[in-house]
């Protein structure tokens, strides 16, 4: 049996943490881009676009992330495609993130007063121009705090991918815990790693929110 020193545990968790951070970053970047597309479909006046977008958002919000990962993992398997845990995790979290971000952003877009939409219309702008030059720049301000806040949820969501065998912090931790019989120590260390990644994000969200409040009070 291999013996683990404290340094060995931390070293392995460091590697896991890098995968967690990397997966979060990919999910957040791709999910953000896809979320923008879902957002546009969701707020479209055309039902052919908004109805599927709504169903998409509902599905990812109202089913557990773990089920979504299983569906992707075993769904691809059923199609005869071998899919790695990494790819499953990346696709799953990207879809999950895109649905949530689209819904968060929809709230910000719809909070822009009706007068702004009408003023743009009366200047003969197309709906794309209206979004690009009038609505989104204003929605962006209010969208930043909840978006950064949600990134914390994405990081913590990556823990679920341990169940399909993706070697991020939690999976690494559970393997070390099984080998060392020191689950409390190992999981406590794993929690510290999550905290180190997430705390700056939530602190940033709070700071941005305070700044925006101050700007509004100007």
């Amino acid at each position: 049996m291999i013996s683990f020193s404290l340094w060995d545990i931390v070293r392995h968790l460091c590697v896991g943490a890098a995968w967690t951070a990397g997966l979060s970053l990919v999910a957040f970047a791709l999910g953000g881009a896809a979320g923008l597309g879902v957002l546009f479909a969701r707020i479209s006046p055309r039902r052919r676009l908004s109805a599927p977008a709504k169903a998409y958002i509902e599905f990812f919000q109202d089913t557990p992330l773990l089920m979504q990962l299983f569906l992707i993992f075993f769904g691809f398997g059923l199609l005869g495609l071998d899919i790695s845990p990494l790819l499953t995790a990346a696709i799953g979290l990207t879809l999950f993130t895109s649905a949530y971000l689209a819904e968060i952003w929809r709230g910000c877009v719809e909070a822009i007063p009706k007068g702004q939409w009408e003023a743009s219309d009366c200047l003969a702008m197309s709906s794309l121009q209206r979004m690009r030059f009038v609505i989104l720049p204003q929605a962006l301000r209010t969208a930043i705090p909840p978006t950064v806040g949600f990134s914390v949820q994405v990081v913590k969501g990556t823990a679920v991918t341990s169940i399909i065998g993706f070697m991020e912090i939690t999976k690494t931790g559970s393997m070390i815990a099984n080998a060392t019989f020191k689950p409390l120590l190992v999981y406590a260390l794993a929690a510290v790693f999550y905290f180190i990644i997430c705390f700056p994000l939530s602190a940033l969200a709070r700071r941005v929110e305070r700044r925006l409040h101050a700007a509004c009070a100007r």
Partner: peptide, 10 residues
């Protein structure tokens, strides 16, 4: 063109 009661400037 249209001008509104609440101005609606951007």
């Amino acid at each position: 063109g249209m001008v509104f009661q609440q101005f609606n400037l951007f």
